[in-house]
Design a protein around this nucleic acid. Sequence first.
RNA 1: GCGUCCGUAGAUCAACUGGAUAGAUCGUCUGACUUCGGAUCAGAAGGUUGUGGGUUCGAUUCCUACCGGACGCACCA
Length: 549
Amino acid sequence: MIEKEKIITDVYNALQKKVAYEDIIIEQPKERSMGDLAIPCFGFAKILKKAPQQIASEIKENLKGDYHSVVIAGGYLNFFLKRAGITEKVLAEAHHDGYGQLSFGGGKTIVIDYSAPNIAKPFSVGHLRSTVIGNALRNICQKCGYQVVGINHLGDWGTQFGKLIAAYKKWGDEEKIRKNPIDELTALYVRFHQEEQNDEKLSDEGRYYFRQLELGNEECVNLWRWFREESLKEFMKTYQLLGIDNFDTYDGEAFYNDKMQKVIEELDDKNILTNSEGAKVVTFDQLPPALIEKQDGATLYITRDLATAFYRKKTYDFAEALYVVGNEQQLHFQQLKAIIKKMGYNFADDIFHVNFGMILQDGKKMSTRHGKTVKLHDVLEEAIEKVSSYTNDYELKRKVGIGAVIFNDLKHYRTNDVEFNLDDILRFEGETGPYVQYTYARIQSLLKNKKEMSITMENIVINDLIWYLVFKVYNFSNIIEKAKNDYDPSQVAKYVLTLTQDFNKWYAEERIMEGDENYIQFKLLVCEAVGSVIKESLSLLGVEAPKKM
RNA sequence: GCGUCCGUAGAUCAACUGGAUAGAUCGUCUGACUUCGGAUCAGAAGGUUGUGGGUUCGAUUCCUACCGGACGCACCA
């Protein structure tokens, strides 16, 4: 926002540059009635050895610049801006598609790794967060002018496939799996687990088949490929419901099988590996050691992730690589970055673990083992079903139901754990997606009254409620930039909530369609601007904005 | 045991990362124009910010010790 820099510069000059430019902080006052922007003067007190209030009044005396008014309150200097100029500018620009677009990304590439469900396991609500946060970050980064590559790093490899193949050969039924792949495969896996407890031979069998799979045994590979295809088909149904199906690649763990040996060799060459109890590990000063190769020569999660990171750097030459993965993997990513750094690559600093809190149930982690998984697809369908009391239009029900689910997740700051609560997810009133969508739809119906006519600002009084809306719309791109820098979509969600709340307050207070025609059309322009920012915000979050609902 | 994160109204979350009288939503209670869309709006009640110290002009935010919780910590991913 230009006004912020103007004010800082004016204050800087008024202080006769006795205070460093960077030390001048600008913020929004607690209450909007106190001013549009504020400069706290407490920090200057030490440097200038005067009371903050006194400094504030001295600044005010020496201040040049075109403000509506400047008010001293406590140690604060509160600025009221001239409304007309900004309003005119905002109304001229905000209704264009793509309002708020930024360019600081400069076309550089950001790789985002998100969603990543596990093959042959249910797509649970636990995967919702990674999926929607990753998708929102994708949109936000694009809005900032970055090129984005969205990667769905499927969990499609590992010893569990040996077990699954063994289980299938024992008890599997092709027909059943075709009909209901995930449930059947999960059932096989669970049964194998149970019987394994009493029968050690089974464990050996599982290991045997995984080894065969690794060696490329045709039957095993074909089974694996089939499991993967069937699972992915079913995942796609969920992705389509969510409206998040635009991944650039679904290459998962298996894709890196032939790329790990090179990494191990390089680690060896650089003398980073040490031997410990027959396994190869990397040790650190500050972190616990990372196991790279097992006693039996098999690779591990971090080995694969190293290969992945190098492949991505080479393929995409990213400026940033984001991993939208839960809190519980923090140590893993610290180790990953530390190893890459040890190998002498600075791009380790461009890797960011965008961590998020878990979805808990009864205060505990959900897990397949305890039978505590809730399938995401079921939750989504329930959400859609709940809209039936408002409409029969399926597409509309989908947009609203899914909007509620996605918005509910994204409005919370990502790193906190959240308790799974179906009632909260399915709520349509208050701080929810449908509330925002409803406001948008209401605006669209108002806009039917809009005429193609030029208006004059001369006789228009921009009252507080209108001004708050305009000023907020004006601030949109700042929010996007902040959301990108913090990798935090919730800032967009919170922003659009307050914008719609403000709008609804105004709507209840002032009749839009009353007054002279010039004023009516002016108000409709305000509506249009607010509507377009609501729509843009929702689309950044991956939520659709129906025109009617 | 060690490490990371968390603890704010009855519930779910905010607080611009150290700033002004700690704000919203749900729930509860009371209201709203013979309606530009009531999936809305106005109002009421609800707080010693887990506890005790400390740092400073100023602390929900930083430091410290406890209490309580979640998650990690070598052959799963």
